[in-house]
Amino acid sequence: MVSYEKQLSKSLSEPVESLFDAAGRDTWASIRKLLTRETEIAVSEFSAAISDFELDQSTVEKMLQDLRDYARNLVEKKAREEAGNVLIRMKDRFSTLFSHDNDSMPRVWTGKEDIKTITKDARAASLRLLSVMAAIRLDEKPDEIENTLFSSLMEGTMTAASSVDRSITSSDPLASSSWEEVSPKNILITPVQCKSLWRQFKAETEYTVTQAISAQEAYKQSNNWLPPPWAILAMVVLGFNEFMLLLRNPLYLMVLFVAYLLSKAMWVQMDIPGQFQHGTLTGLISISSRFLPTVMNLLKRLAEEAQGHQTPDGPRQQSPLAFQTFKNQSPINPTSSVPESSVSSNIPTSDGGIEYSSPNLTHRRSTKIQEAQVS
């Protein structure tokens, strides 16, 4: 029989613990089904094992009942152990549901999330876990533990202002040490203990909600640099004279444009939005410490760019000097390399004139009469 008890302990302990870890409305129904299945398997195997022995029916029934009681006591013992850690499990469930979305991805508080709804859903899941662990439900008897807890803790929290108008004589359903329709031996957590655990749970998870709200507000401020609409309207109305002054003096527009370019460059260099992500005071201190080095860096870069535009003019100014040097160094040849015989100049004159030929300096004179005789 000891071997079958070990078999039941192995087949029930870990599955029951897993079901309590994911506690929900169907937790106890699943535990009852698991208990019935594993108990029947162990009982049938044990009956087959002792069938060869000549035992009376009463002894066999007693041994089988002891095996069933062992399985039930094992589940009840496991439930009491898990009830002692219910606060830890409630906080773990709240943290999981609050910090992760439906796809089990970590939440990034960008300002679009409804923190109030997310907090309410996470607390409701934690309170449902508390209602599951409040009593042992192996007998399939209905109870109102979950409804009582939600009406007293969740709805009572949401309507705290209206609770002032309640009658002083109205009874608190959690001001008791027992649950209605639940046997005292099956109670794991009393109503008074549930109320105390819920108060402690809210106090320990309030910091997580506050951090989420702060992160959301910081994200909104870092992505919204515009003033309120009423401030924009006031600037338009009160700054009308200055606007007309700018239109009459375009030079002011040029000055403002240059100032805008410089401020934009400093904005990018100093990464002002990134500095304010860690807080206003931290951002101001960081900007004040980086302001002067950033200005000096911009002036240095402007000076380097100005020098860079002047450097290409240097070689152009040296080109006449190089040409003059080359001219002085090259020797001058007084005589031409071309032979004199190849150089000639023919200067034609009028019909009755003179024709000269050089370099032979041949002079030929012809007249119209001689041409006529030759012809």
Rank of each mutant, 00 (worst) to 15 (best):
L284M: 14
M254A: 14
P315G: 04
S345E: 03
M235Q: 14
S330R: 08
R316I: 10
K300T: 15
L253C: 11
L281T: 05
L246T: 04
I287C: 03
Q310G: 01
A259G: 13
I285G: 05
I272P: 00
Q310E: 03
S263V: 11
M244Q: 15
L361C: 11
S336N: 07
V237L: 15
S263D: 13
Y260W: 14
S342F: 05
H309G: 07
L262D: 11
M244N: 14
Q317D: 07
Q317P: 01
F257H: 11
E305Y: 08
Q307T: 09
T349N: 08
N360Y: 09
P315T: 11
D351K: 00
F291C: 11
I285V: 14
T349L: 03
R290I: 05
N241M: 10
S366M: 11
I272H: 00
Y260L: 12
M296K: 14
L299G: 13
M254N: 13
P348R: 03
D351Q: 09
L238I: 05
P339T: 00
P250S: 08
T311G: 01
L361I: 11
G274M: 03
Y260P: 02
T294C: 12
L238R: 06
T335F: 12
Q307I: 06
D271A: 06
E242C: 00
E242A: 10
L247E: 13
R290P: 00
S344Y: 06
V236M: 13
S358P: 01
L284D: 09
Q318D: 15
D351F: 08
L262H: 08
P320H: 08
L238F: 09
M254Q: 14
K300N: 15
V268W: 07
V343D: 03
N360C: 03
L256M: 13
F276D: 04
P315V: 10
G352V: 08
D271S: 11
L246A: 02
L284K: 12
L261V: 04
N249A: 01
S341A: 09
G239I: 01
L246C: 07
T311H: 06
L281C: 04
V236W: 11
V338N: 00
N297G: 09
A322I: 11
R248W: 09
L298P: 02
M235A: 15
P250R: 01
A306Q: 10
G283M: 02
Q317M: 09
S337D: 07
R364H: 10
L246I: 09
T294E: 03
L251G: 12
S350A: 07
W267C: 01
G308Y: 08
L247K: 14
S289T: 13
F326L: 09
P315R: 06
T349W: 02
P334S: 05
G283P: 05
G239T: 01
P320W: 04
G279F: 02
R316Y: 12
F257T: 13
G239D: 02
L262T: 13
P312H: 05
G274K: 05
L321V: 11
L246D: 01
V255P: 01
A303T: 14
I332A: 04
P293F: 07
E305P: 00
L261G: 05
N328L: 13
V258D: 09
S345K: 00
F257L: 14
N249S: 10
A303S: 15
S336D: 10
S341G: 09
M296G: 12
A322D: 12
S350Q: 06
T325Y: 04
Q324N: 03
N328A: 14
Q307Y: 14
V338W: 00
